Amino acid sequence: MDGDSQRSRTAEGAAALRAAGARERDPALRNPDNLAEHLIGLRYRLGTRIPPMRAVLLWQIERRMPGLYSYVTARTKHLDELLLTETRSGAKQVVILGAGADSRAYRLSDALGDAQVFEVDHPATGAWKRERLRNLPDAHWDRVGFVAVDFGTGTLDDALADGGVDRAVPTVFLWEGVTPYLTSAEVDATLSAIARFATGSSVVFDYWYRDVFDRPCPYPEGEKFFRGLAARGEPARSGLDPATLADHLAERGLRLIDNAGPRELARHLPGARRPIMSFSAIAHARVP
C-alpha cells in the first residue's frame, strides 16, 4: 500500500466544506477558514469556487450527510473561540491531534502570539499536508512542529516526546473530527495521555453520541452518515454518552468544563436555514 492510500480522505473533504463555507455571502454564516481552499485538490477547489458547482456540491453533501455542512462551520467557529481563549489565558503550546488540513497555525498565527504549535498526524497524512502547505501565502512554517504517529507501531506519549512537545508546559489540545473513527480504547488512551500534561492544560474535541450506533438508529440522518463513511473506507467506530461524559472524563484524569451540543452550537449560525447534524457535540475538558 502506498503512502497516499493511507492518508485520511475525510480531512480533505472537511476542508472542502470549510472552503465552501468561507464563500457564504452572509457574514454570520461564513466559515472563518479562508485558507482551506489552498489545502484541497483541484476538483474540490473548482467545486467550491464556482457558484453553480458549489451549489451542486452542497446539495450532494446535504443529501448524503444531512446537517454536516452547517455543523462544520459551527465547529470551526467554536474551536477557534476556545483555542484563542486558552492561549490568551496562558497556554504556551497548541497540539492539534489528527491535524489533517487544519489551517489554524497559519490562519490564526498573529492571534496565537508566542504559543508553539504542533501538528500530529499519521505519516502519510502529514506528508500530504506539508505538500499542500506550499500553496499557502505566508505560511509561518517556523512556528509549527510536525509530529508523525502511527498507532500501529508507537504510542502518542512517545510521539509527542520525540516531537519536542513539553509535558510540563500548559498546553491546549485540539482534536477535531477524529474520535468517531477511533475505537473506544483508542479514544480513552488519548484522553489519558492528555491528562498527564501540566495542570491547567485542556482538550477540545468533538464526538458522536453513543446511541447513534444503536439499531435502529434513533437519528433520522444517522444511517445516511454510516453509509457515506463506509463507502469512503473510513467507517465510524465509537461514540460517547453526553449524560455520563463528565464521569467518563474524570476517570481518565480530566474535568469537563463545557459540552456544547447542536442547540448550543447553533448560536454560531444565526438565521441559518440549513439544519445542523443532531448527534454530535464538542467537549472542553481540563487537567485539574
Rank of each mutant, 00 (worst) to 15 (best):
A124P: 10
R143V: 02
A159Y: 02
G228C: 04
Q116F: 02
V204S: 14
L256E: 04
G67D: 06
F151P: 13
A14M: 14
N34C: 15
P170N: 03
E176Y: 02
G261A: 04
R63E: 07
L79F: 10
R273Y: 01
G13F: 13
T244G: 00
R286N: 11
H268W: 13
P235H: 03
T155D: 06
A139G: 14
S5V: 00
P137E: 15
A266P: 08
S8T: 05
V178A: 09
P262S: 06
D33F: 04
V56I: 06
A193Q: 04
D110N: 05
E264Y: 00
D206A: 13
S109V: 07
D110K: 07
E81W: 00
A159T: 09
E186F: 00
H122V: 15
F146W: 12
S89Q: 14
S8W: 01
P52G: 11
T10V: 09
A74N: 10
R263L: 07
D206L: 10
P180I: 00
E234Y: 03
D188G: 02
L35D: 13
H248L: 00
G261F: 03
V169Y: 04
A101H: 01
R18K: 12
P288D: 15
S201D: 04
P262M: 04
R263C: 05
R132N: 13
R227C: 08
I40P: 10
S201M: 01
L79N: 14
P52D: 13
P242F: 00
V187A: 13
D114S: 11
V212M: 15
G3N: 12
V204K: 02
T183V: 05
A193G: 06
F151W: 13
R43P: 12
D206S: 12
F173S: 13
F226S: 08
A99Q: 05
P275D: 07
H268E: 10
R54Y: 06
D110T: 06
I50P: 14
G228N: 15
Y219H: 09
G13P: 04
L256K: 05
R196P: 10
S280W: 09
F146H: 12
S184V: 09
T125A: 15
L83Y: 07
S103Y: 02
F205P: 13
L46F: 13
Q60I: 03
F173N: 11
A11H: 01
D102W: 01
P220T: 03
L39T: 12
I61Q: 02
A19F: 07
L42S: 15
D211S: 11
Y207V: 10
A236Q: 07
T199F: 00
R134P: 14
R255E: 06
L156N: 15
D258Y: 00
R49S: 15
